[in-house]
Computed example of a mutant assay.
Amino acid sequence: MLQHSSSCIEAPNMSSAVKEVTVKLPRSHDRPEEPWYRYLSIDVIWYVLGYTVFHPFVSWVVVLCLRAQYTPYGNPEMRIAIAWSILMSAIGIFGIISDRIAFGSPREVDLAEEVIVITGGVDGLGGLLAETYGMRSANVAVLDVKTMDQDEAEEKGVVYYQCDVSDAKQVEAAAAKIVEDLGVPTILINNAGIVHKKSILDTTAEEVEQTFRVNTLSHFHTLRTFLPHMLREGRGTIVTVSSVLGHLGAANLSAYTASKAALLALHHSLRAELAQIPEAKEIKTILVTPGQMSTQMFADVNPPSNFFGPTATPADLGKSIIKLIEKGESGEVAIPLYSHWIGFFFVLPVGIQQLIRRWSGLDTAVAVSRKLAEKN
């Protein structure tokens, strides 16, 4: 069980000077030996196709190459190349227009003028985001129940506040200190989360309540606390870290998946409410629905298929989140690839859905890991 602090610890003032951060790059012999095909996945193939066959610019380059060879416009290969280029360009333009209709114009983001609040920012995805922004001398406040000493916080370039985000009073106290130490928060990354890998019958009422308090209710506390500051500033970005399991559910993860499913509805409700507030025009929202991540929380769960369902790394997610934040855009981050297209799963006949669940091993992954743990 997690130990929750009863108060927020005052953080020291951070220097604005750029700090030298030592980086230890992984050596080749530090990495486990894996056959080459272990690194091949549908995500890698899709990524390559997206920058080649399905890229409008590359498609038109093929047309230009054919013309350079004096290929007549009437030839079949030229007609196919032009038609494909027009189709790829049309899809790209449609995507831009669709995003603009859905999310509006991007806001201007200057890290020197932003104050970033990250919950659960000691390790995992939150820790990576905090450290990345800290190395860039951004104003970063980390809220977490896990401890971080002052030297470690200064080395990472962040200001640390020991705070249980499931407690509304502690969040309010931390917010007051953040405003005093760093300024008005304008970027909120709701990342804190816990998991109990148990069946519904084995999970206690206290564990269910704790899961919802940390994974779900904490978002309400931080939104009620930090959103008014963003409205007064007339700008902001809110990142909601949910999970693809919020769509799917999974055996032996009932409390976790239910708490993450609630975040999906919360995100859409938040967007709908912000759309009705004139002062919220420049407040952007980002929904993150990752698949299984290579973090300590799910370290004992092996992905059923490394090709179709590879494990997402915090670096992959962090890169996409940071890109949207700094472009000042709203949007969604869904990694691996199946997370992005999960909506089509529910269009399939229920029998096909059940066969896919059995084939994927979705509902046995945690049970298998528990049996292995008991044997060890």
Rank of each mutant, 00 (worst) to 15 (best):
residue 210 Q to I: 07
residue 3 Q to T: 15
residue 185 P to Q: 04
residue 73 Y to M: 11
residue 9 I to F: 13
residue 29 H to Y: 15
residue 351 G to W: 06
residue 313 T to E: 08
residue 264 L to H: 07
residue 100 R to H: 15
residue 163 C to I: 07
residue 376 N to Q: 13
residue 144 D to M: 03
residue 160 Y to G: 08
residue 253 L to T: 09
residue 152 E to N: 08
residue 359 W to P: 06
residue 45 I to C: 02
residue 92 G to Q: 13
residue 191 N to W: 11
residue 147 T to M: 13
residue 61 V to T: 06
residue 95 G to D: 06
residue 317 L to Y: 05
residue 29 H to C: 13
residue 120 G to N: 01
residue 16 S to V: 14
residue 347 V to Q: 15
residue 310 P to K: 01
residue 281 K to H: 10
residue 336 P to Q: 05
residue 117 V to C: 03
residue 376 N to S: 12
residue 311 T to L: 07
residue 305 S to L: 01
residue 193 G to F: 03
residue 316 D to K: 12
residue 108 E to R: 15
residue 107 R to L: 01
residue 147 T to N: 15
residue 280 A to R: 05
residue 254 S to W: 03
residue 121 G to P: 10
residue 286 I to A: 04
residue 2 L to M: 12
residue 129 L to Q: 06
residue 101 I to W: 13
residue 146 K to M: 11
residue 51 Y to I: 12
residue 12 P to W: 04
residue 95 G to C: 05
residue 78 M to C: 01
residue 253 L to V: 06
residue 31 R to G: 01
residue 231 L to K: 07
residue 319 K to V: 10
residue 219 H to P: 03
residue 157 G to H: 01
residue 334 A to S: 08
residue 63 V to W: 09
residue 335 I to A: 02
residue 5 S to L: 08
residue 218 S to L: 01
residue 289 T to C: 09
residue 12 P to G: 08
residue 315 A to E: 11
residue 45 I to F: 03
residue 121 G to W: 11
residue 46 W to D: 11
residue 331 G to C: 02
residue 74 G to R: 14
residue 280 A to E: 05
residue 52 T to V: 07
residue 135 M to Y: 05
residue 36 W to D: 08
residue 250 A to P: 02
residue 88 M to N: 10
residue 292 Q to Y: 13
residue 134 G to H: 00
residue 146 K to T: 09
residue 151 D to R: 14
residue 3 Q to R: 15
residue 153 A to S: 10
residue 292 Q to C: 12
residue 79 R to I: 14
residue 181 D to K: 15
residue 223 L to Y: 03
residue 115 V to M: 00
residue 12 P to I: 05
residue 302 N to R: 15
residue 62 V to H: 07
residue 7 S to R: 14
residue 352 I to S: 10
residue 72 P to T: 11
residue 335 I to M: 04
residue 89 S to W: 09
residue 323 K to T: 12
residue 264 L to Q: 04
residue 100 R to K: 15
residue 21 V to N: 05
residue 115 V to W: 00
residue 47 Y to N: 14
residue 223 L to C: 03
residue 221 H to K: 00
residue 363 D to Y: 10
residue 185 P to R: 02
residue 284 K to E: 03
residue 56 P to M: 04
residue 145 V to R: 06
residue 316 D to M: 13
residue 171 V to M: 08
residue 36 W to Q: 09
residue 49 L to N: 02
residue 76 P to D: 09
residue 127 G to S: 00
residue 34 E to G: 06
residue 138 A to W: 06
residue 309 G to F: 14
residue 86 I to P: 10
residue 217 L to V: 09
residue 325 I to S: 01
residue 309 G to C: 13
residue 202 D to F: 06
residue 49 L to E: 02
residue 91 I to Q: 14
residue 263 L to E: 01
residue 270 L to I: 05
residue 268 H to W: 09
residue 219 H to W: 03
residue 212 F to S: 03
residue 139 N to R: 13
